[in-house]
Amino acid sequence: MTQRVLIRGLEGLVALLLLALIAVTAVDVVGRYLMNAPLSGAFEMTELILGALVFAALPLVSKSGSHVEVDLLVSVLPTRVNHRLGLAAAAISAAVLVYFAWQLGRLGLNQLHEGSRSVSLGVPYWPFAALGAVCCLLAAWFGIRRAVRT
Rank of each mutant, 00 (worst) to 15 (best):
V134P: 02
G31S: 08
V96I: 15
A91G: 07
V70R: 06
V24H: 08
G143H: 04
V29T: 08
S118P: 07
D28E: 08
A94I: 04
L87N: 07
L18D: 08
H113W: 05
I22L: 15
A37T: 06
L6Q: 09
R8Y: 10
S75A: 09
R117D: 13
L104T: 01
V74D: 15
E47N: 04
E47A: 06
S116P: 00
L16V: 11
A42L: 14
L137D: 11
G51V: 06
A57Y: 03
V68Y: 04
I144L: 15
G105Q: 07
S40Q: 14
L60A: 12
W126D: 06
I49T: 07
A37E: 15
P59M: 10
R84M: 13
A91S: 12
L18F: 09
A94S: 10
F100M: 14
A20Y: 03
W102Q: 10
N36G: 11
L39I: 04
P38H: 06
S93D: 08
A90W: 03
N110L: 13
V119T: 07
R80G: 10
L73R: 00
L6P: 00
P78T: 02
M1E: 11
R8T: 08
F142N: 06
C135P: 02
M45I: 01
S75W: 00
F142T: 00
I22S: 14
Q111S: 13
D71T: 02
V148M: 11
T150A: 15
L39K: 02
E69T: 01
D28I: 00
L138H: 00
T79Y: 02
E114G: 00
R145Q: 14
L10F: 08
R106E: 14
R80Q: 12
D28C: 04
A89W: 02
R106F: 03
V119E: 15
R84W: 12
L13D: 10
T2Y: 00
P78N: 12
F43P: 01
G9E: 14
S75P: 00
I7Y: 05
A133Y: 02
V29R: 04
V70A: 13
S66W: 11
R80M: 09
V119W: 10
L53P: 02
L77V: 00
H67K: 00
L77F: 01
F100P: 06
G51Q: 12
G132Y: 05
M35S: 10
V68N: 06
A15N: 09
L121V: 09
A56P: 05
